[in-house]
Amino acid sequence: MRIDWDIPIVMDDGLVLRADLFRPGVEGRHPVLLSYGPYAKGLAFQDGYPSAWQRMISEHPEVGSASSGKYQNWEVVDPEKWVPQGYACLRIDSRGAGRSPGRIEHFAPRETQDLYQSIEWAGVQAWSSGKVGLNGISYYAINQWHAASLQPLHLAAMCVWEGAADWYRDMTHHGGILCTFWANWYDMQVKTVQYGLGERGPRSRLTDLAVCGD
Results as ranks from 00 to 15, higher is better:
residue 31 P to R: 04
residue 25 G to T: 07
residue 60 H to T: 09
residue 66 A to N: 15
residue 42 G to Q: 09
residue 26 V to Q: 14
residue 63 V to S: 05
residue 19 A to V: 02
residue 12 D to I: 04
residue 32 V to K: 01
residue 66 A to G: 10
residue 65 S to E: 15
residue 58 S to Y: 03
residue 61 P to W: 03
residue 62 E to T: 12
residue 8 P to L: 02
residue 35 S to M: 02
residue 35 S to I: 01
residue 52 A to H: 12
residue 12 D to C: 07
residue 49 Y to D: 03
residue 24 P to D: 02
residue 39 Y to W: 11
residue 41 K to E: 02
residue 26 V to F: 09
residue 14 G to S: 07
residue 25 G to Q: 09
residue 14 G to V: 10
residue 47 D to S: 14
residue 13 D to I: 12
residue 28 G to W: 13
residue 21 L to W: 00
residue 19 A to Y: 01
residue 63 V to T: 13
residue 44 A to T: 11
residue 65 S to H: 13
residue 11 M to Q: 15
residue 63 V to Q: 07
residue 9 I to V: 15
residue 46 Q to E: 13
residue 33 L to R: 00
residue 53 W to Q: 09
residue 66 A to F: 13
residue 51 S to L: 13
residue 54 Q to A: 12
residue 62 E to H: 11
residue 50 P to K: 12
residue 24 P to E: 09
residue 46 Q to G: 07
residue 24 P to H: 10
residue 45 F to V: 05
residue 31 P to E: 06
residue 10 V to S: 08
residue 41 K to D: 06
residue 33 L to S: 08
residue 21 L to R: 11
residue 36 Y to I: 09
residue 24 P to M: 03
residue 18 R to P: 05
residue 40 A to K: 06
residue 34 L to D: 11
residue 18 R to I: 08
residue 64 G to V: 05
residue 51 S to Y: 05
residue 23 R to M: 10
residue 56 M to H: 04
residue 38 P to R: 02
residue 8 P to I: 06
residue 59 E to W: 07
residue 48 G to E: 03
residue 63 V to D: 09
residue 61 P to D: 07
residue 32 V to L: 04
residue 23 R to G: 01
residue 18 R to Y: 00
residue 53 W to T: 06
residue 43 L to R: 06
residue 13 D to T: 12
residue 64 G to P: 04
residue 13 D to V: 12
residue 12 D to F: 04
residue 57 I to L: 14
residue 25 G to H: 08
residue 19 A to S: 08
residue 17 L to G: 09
residue 27 E to M: 07
residue 41 K to R: 15
residue 53 W to I: 00
residue 63 V to E: 13
residue 30 H to C: 04
residue 66 A to Q: 14
residue 26 V to G: 10
residue 29 R to K: 15
residue 43 L to K: 07
residue 61 P to S: 11
residue 16 V to K: 11
residue 20 D to R: 06
residue 24 P to R: 06
residue 51 S to W: 09
residue 23 R to W: 00
residue 10 V to T: 15
residue 38 P to V: 08
residue 24 P to A: 01
residue 48 G to R: 09
residue 49 Y to A: 11
residue 36 Y to H: 14
residue 17 L to M: 06
residue 21 L to E: 00
residue 40 A to I: 15
residue 16 V to L: 02
residue 59 E to K: 14
residue 33 L to Y: 00
residue 32 V to E: 00
residue 10 V to M: 08
residue 34 L to W: 03
residue 43 L to T: 14
residue 45 F to M: 12
residue 42 G to A: 09
residue 15 L to R: 12
residue 9 I to T: 07
residue 60 H to P: 00
residue 46 Q to T: 15
residue 27 E to Y: 05
residue 33 L to C: 06
residue 38 P to D: 06
residue 53 W to M: 07
residue 29 R to Q: 14
residue 52 A to I: 01
residue 11 M to E: 10
residue 12 D to L: 03
residue 46 Q to K: 15
residue 56 M to W: 14
